[in-house]
Computed example of a mutant assay.
Amino acid sequence: MVREREILGTGKYLELVREDGWEFAIRNKGSGVVGIIPVTDDNALVLVEQWRAAIDGPCIELPAGLVGDEDDAEEDMLVAAQRELEEETGFCAREWKWLYEGASSAGMTPETVHMYLATRLSRVGQGGGTSHENITVHVVPLDTIEQWLAEQRKRGATIDIKVFGALGIARGAVDPLD
């Protein structure tokens, strides 16, 4: 099947495409996306918060990032996950488990996210992201996280939907490979 693709606009990071009547965005940089579910030895989930222009406000998220966006198109997914965890949160993990890959927003982008569970964490830095990011790190006990998330919503933060999906995995109640 031949698809007719039209480029509607190209920015520094995204391209807007129309294909067979559908419009969607494609990233110009990077070869993939990784997301991390970092769980401390004392059963806390490490989350990040940053202002997001698309929602015009703060967003509570799992640590995540682009693979190969630093001029290394061949970067390994796990290596990218390890790099992003340390950059964004200041934590390193001694144990990593690949969980699954899935669409981030199938109606808007062909992008998929490779999710990893990171455990046996140790703090090696402050986190906060790279020079163009302003990330706040939150270490939230799993036994009070729903209340904490509700408080964040009340103050006006958006909670990324992947955080809710990560809770069962972080608590060990859900194994996505079963």
Score class of each variant (00 low, 15 high):
Leu16Glu: 12
Ile145His: 05
Asp72Lys: 14
Ala80Asp: 03
Asp178Cys: 07
Arg120Asp: 15
Asp20Trp: 12
Glu87Asp: 13
Gly128Glu: 04
Leu47Trp: 03
Gly168Thr: 00
Arg27Phe: 11
Ala150Trp: 11
Glu23Phe: 03
Asp42Leu: 10
Thr89Gly: 08
Thr130His: 04
Gly68Glu: 01
Glu4Ser: 11
Ala157Met: 10
Ala106Gly: 05
Arg120Asn: 15
Asp20Phe: 09
Gly172Leu: 03
Arg153Gly: 01
Glu4Gln: 11
Pro110Ser: 05
Trp22Asp: 10
Leu149Tyr: 00
Ala73Val: 10
Asp143Tyr: 12
Arg123Pro: 05
Asp160Lys: 09
Ala64Leu: 05
Val67Lys: 07
Leu8Lys: 15
Asp42Arg: 15
Glu23Ser: 13
Phe91Pro: 05
Glu95Tyr: 07
Val113Met: 13
Gly57Asn: 04
Met1Asn: 12
Arg3Glu: 12
Asp76Gln: 02
Val79Ser: 13
Asp76Gly: 04
Glu101Gln: 14
Asp175Gln: 08
Ala81Phe: 04
Lys29Thr: 15
Trp51Phe: 14
Leu66Pro: 00
Val39Asp: 03
Ala170Gly: 06
Asp72Met: 11
Leu167Lys: 01
Trp148Phe: 14
Arg171Tyr: 00
Ser122Glu: 12
Leu99Thr: 01
Pro38Gly: 05
Met77Lys: 07
Gly172Tyr: 06
Ala80Glu: 00
Gln147Tyr: 08
Gly11Thr: 15
Thr144Glu: 15
Leu78Met: 09
Glu101Leu: 01
Val48Pro: 01
Asp175Glu: 12
Ile145Thr: 07
Ile36Thr: 05
Ala93Lys: 02
His138Met: 05
His114Ala: 13
Gly57His: 04
Gly172Glu: 03
Ala170Lys: 01
Thr40Cys: 08
Ile37Trp: 03
Arg3Gln: 08
Ser31His: 06
Arg155Glu: 09
Val67Phe: 02
Leu177Gly: 15
Gln147Ala: 12
Arg120Cys: 07
Ile36Ala: 02
Ile135Cys: 03
Gly102Ala: 11
Val174Tyr: 00
Arg153Trp: 05
Ile159Thr: 06
Ser122Tyr: 07
Asp76Arg: 04
Leu45Gln: 07
Gly90Asp: 07
Leu14Val: 11
Ser104Arg: 14
Leu78Val: 03
Ala106Pro: 13
Ile36Asp: 02
Asp143Ser: 11
Asp20Leu: 10
Gln50Ile: 01
Arg52Pro: 02
Pro176Trp: 01
Leu62Phe: 04
Asn43Lys: 11
Asp42Lys: 14
Ala73Gly: 10
Glu101Asp: 08
Ala25Ile: 10
Asp42Ile: 10
Glu86His: 08
Asn134Phe: 05
Ile7His: 03
Gly30Thr: 08
Glu95Thr: 13
Val48Ala: 02
Val17Met: 07
Leu47Pro: 06
Arg18Trp: 09
Glu74Gly: 06
Pro176Tyr: 00
